[in-house]
Simulated assay, not measured.
Amino acid sequence: MDVNIHVNDPREHINEEPRNDFWDLVFGFVGMFGFMTVIFFGFVIIKFLVG
C-alpha cells in the first residue's frame, strides 16, 4: 500500500517574515514611552493653564 503524504516540517518557518524581533520590541517600547511622555506633558501643561 503506497500512500502519498505531504507533511510540512514546522521548523521550516515558511510564512515567517524575515524581521528582527528584538528591534521590533525596542522600537515598540521606545515609541510607546515617547507617546506617553508627550501625553503626560500635555496634561501637565493643560493643568497649569486651567488652574
Results as ranks from 00 to 15, higher is better:
Ile39Pro: 00
Ile46Ser: 06
Gly51His: 08
His13Glu: 15
Phe48Tyr: 12
Asp21Glu: 15
His13Lys: 10
Lys47Gln: 12
Gly31Phe: 00
Asn4Asp: 15
Glu17Met: 13
Phe33Trp: 07
Asn8Ala: 09
Pro10Asp: 09
Glu12Ala: 11
Asn4Phe: 14
Gly51Asn: 02
His6Cys: 00
Val30Cys: 13
Gly42Gln: 04
Leu25Lys: 10
Asn4Glu: 13
Glu16Leu: 00
Val38Ser: 03
Gly31Gln: 10
Glu16Ser: 07
Phe40His: 11
Phe29Ala: 09
Phe35Asp: 00
Val7Glu: 08
Val50Ala: 07
Pro18Phe: 04
Glu17Val: 02
Val26Tyr: 08
Phe48Lys: 07
Val7Ser: 07
Gly34Leu: 09
Val26Lys: 08
Val44Ser: 11
Gly31Pro: 00
Asn4Ile: 12
Pro10Ser: 06
Asn15Ser: 04
Ile5Arg: 05
Ile14Pro: 03
Phe29His: 12
Arg11Gln: 06
Ile5Asn: 03
His13Thr: 01
Val44Ala: 14
Leu25His: 05
Phe40Ala: 14
Met36Leu: 15
Gly28Lys: 01
Phe35His: 01
Lys47Leu: 11
His13Val: 04
Met36Trp: 12
Ile5Ser: 06
Asn8Tyr: 12
Met32Asp: 02
Gly34Lys: 02
Gly42Lys: 03
Arg19Phe: 03
Ile14Glu: 14
Pro18Tyr: 05
Val26Glu: 08
Leu49Trp: 13
Val7Pro: 06
Val44Cys: 08
Val38Trp: 02
Phe27His: 13
Val44Pro: 05
Asn4Trp: 02
Val7Lys: 09
Ile39Glu: 13
Phe33Leu: 07
Lys47Gly: 09
Thr37Val: 05
Pro10Tyr: 00
Phe43Asp: 02
Val38Lys: 12
Val7Gln: 15
Asp9Met: 01
Val38Asn: 05
Gly34Asp: 03
Phe35Ile: 15
Phe27Ile: 09
Ile45Tyr: 11
Gly51Leu: 15
Phe41Gln: 08
Phe33Gly: 05
Val44Leu: 14
Gly31Thr: 06
Phe35Cys: 12
Val38Gly: 02
Asn15Met: 10
Met32Asn: 13
Ile39Arg: 04
Phe33Tyr: 13
Asn20Arg: 07
Trp23Lys: 12
Gly51Asp: 06
Gly31Ile: 01
Glu17Thr: 03
Leu49Lys: 14
Arg19Asp: 02
Val50His: 05
His6Gln: 14
His6Lys: 13
Asn15Phe: 04
Ile45Arg: 05
Val3Lys: 14
Phe22Met: 08
Glu17Phe: 11
Met36Asn: 04
Phe22Thr: 04
Met32Ala: 11
Pro18Asp: 12
Arg19Glu: 08
Phe48Leu: 15
Met1Thr: 10
Gly28Gln: 01
Phe48Pro: 05
Arg11Cys: 01
Asn20Met: 04
